Computed example of a mutant assay.
Amino acid sequence: DTTLGGIELKTGDQLLLVLAGANRDGGEFDDPDVVRIDRTPNRHLSFGSGPHRCLGSHLARVELRIVFEELHRRIPDYRIDTGRQVVSHPSQVRGVLELPILFTPER
C-alpha cells in the first residue's frame, strides 16, 4: 500500500499510466504545454526509457531532422494559425493530427 499524488493505492489496485501525459508536469517543466525544442534540461520520455527504449529511436531522430530541415527550406515563414485549433490524436501515443499553419505561398 502507498500514496501517490495524494491518492491512496492498495496492493492489487490497477493503474493506467497514460504516456501522453509524460513531460506535462508543471512542477517539473516550465510551460509544459508549449513545444520548446531547446528546453533544458529536457528529460523527456518520447522514445521510452531503459530496457523499453524504442529500438528505432535513433532512426526516427534522423528522419525528423531531415523533415524539419526540408520544411524550413521550402516554407521558411510558416507560423501556427492561432485562430484554428490544433487537433491531437487521443490515444496512448501523443501526436498531432492537424496543425494549421499560415505561410506565404511560393509564386
Score class of each variant (00 low, 15 high):
residue 36 R to G: 06
residue 83 G to N: 01
residue 89 H to R: 13
residue 76 P to K: 02
residue 107 R to N: 06
residue 84 R to M: 05
residue 39 R to D: 04
residue 32 P to S: 10
residue 85 Q to T: 06
residue 42 N to I: 03
residue 61 R to I: 03
residue 90 P to E: 04
residue 55 L to G: 02
residue 12 G to W: 04
residue 77 D to A: 07
residue 58 H to N: 08
residue 55 L to E: 01
residue 76 P to D: 10
residue 12 G to M: 09
residue 2 T to K: 05
residue 14 Q to C: 09
residue 76 P to S: 11
residue 44 H to L: 05
residue 46 S to L: 04
residue 84 R to I: 11
residue 97 L to C: 08
residue 32 P to D: 14
residue 91 S to V: 01
residue 80 I to S: 03
residue 43 R to H: 15
residue 68 F to M: 15
residue 28 E to D: 07
residue 74 R to P: 01
residue 107 R to W: 02
residue 78 Y to C: 02
residue 69 E to D: 15
residue 16 L to F: 15
residue 7 I to G: 02
residue 77 D to W: 00
residue 65 R to N: 14
residue 30 D to F: 14
residue 24 R to E: 12
residue 67 V to S: 07
residue 77 D to H: 01
residue 54 C to F: 09
residue 94 R to A: 07
residue 28 E to Q: 15
residue 39 R to K: 04
residue 35 V to R: 07
residue 44 H to E: 06
residue 59 L to V: 11
residue 27 G to C: 10
residue 2 T to C: 07
residue 74 R to G: 09
residue 3 T to C: 14
residue 37 I to A: 12
residue 26 G to C: 10
residue 8 E to L: 12
residue 42 N to Y: 08
residue 61 R to Q: 07
residue 42 N to H: 06
residue 33 D to V: 12
residue 8 E to G: 15
residue 58 H to I: 02
residue 58 H to E: 01
residue 84 R to G: 00
residue 87 V to E: 13
residue 79 R to L: 10
residue 36 R to V: 09
residue 43 R to E: 15
residue 6 G to W: 03
residue 20 A to P: 00
residue 67 V to K: 06
residue 90 P to N: 06
residue 25 D to S: 03
residue 1 D to W: 12
residue 55 L to T: 00
residue 96 V to N: 02
residue 21 G to R: 03
residue 20 A to K: 01
residue 107 R to F: 07
residue 20 A to E: 03
residue 106 E to T: 07
residue 104 T to V: 06
residue 100 P to D: 05
residue 95 G to T: 00
residue 65 R to T: 12
residue 47 F to C: 12
residue 85 Q to F: 08
residue 67 V to H: 10
residue 81 D to G: 01
residue 99 L to N: 07
residue 91 S to M: 05
residue 43 R to F: 12
residue 5 G to N: 08
residue 74 R to N: 05
residue 32 P to I: 11
residue 88 S to H: 13
residue 106 E to N: 05
residue 76 P to T: 13
residue 36 R to A: 13
residue 18 V to R: 06
residue 4 L to I: 15
residue 1 D to F: 09
residue 25 D to P: 06
residue 60 A to D: 11
residue 24 R to W: 00
residue 47 F to T: 04
residue 28 E to W: 04
residue 61 R to C: 02
residue 37 I to V: 11
residue 18 V to S: 09
residue 49 S to C: 12
residue 68 F to H: 06
residue 64 L to W: 05
residue 67 V to D: 04
residue 35 V to G: 09
residue 60 A to Y: 05
residue 76 P to H: 06
residue 48 G to K: 08
residue 22 A to Q: 02
residue 52 H to T: 08
residue 56 G to H: 00
residue 33 D to N: 11
residue 31 D to E: 13
residue 54 C to E: 03
residue 101 I to F: 04
residue 44 H to R: 09
residue 31 D to L: 13
residue 27 G to A: 13
residue 41 P to H: 13
residue 7 I to P: 00
residue 90 P to T: 07
residue 25 D to K: 11
residue 34 V to L: 13
residue 16 L to M: 08
residue 33 D to W: 12
residue 60 A to K: 01
residue 46 S to Y: 06
residue 87 V to W: 03
residue 82 T to C: 01
residue 54 C to R: 03
residue 107 R to G: 09
residue 41 P to W: 05
residue 61 R to P: 00
residue 83 G to F: 02
residue 3 T to R: 13
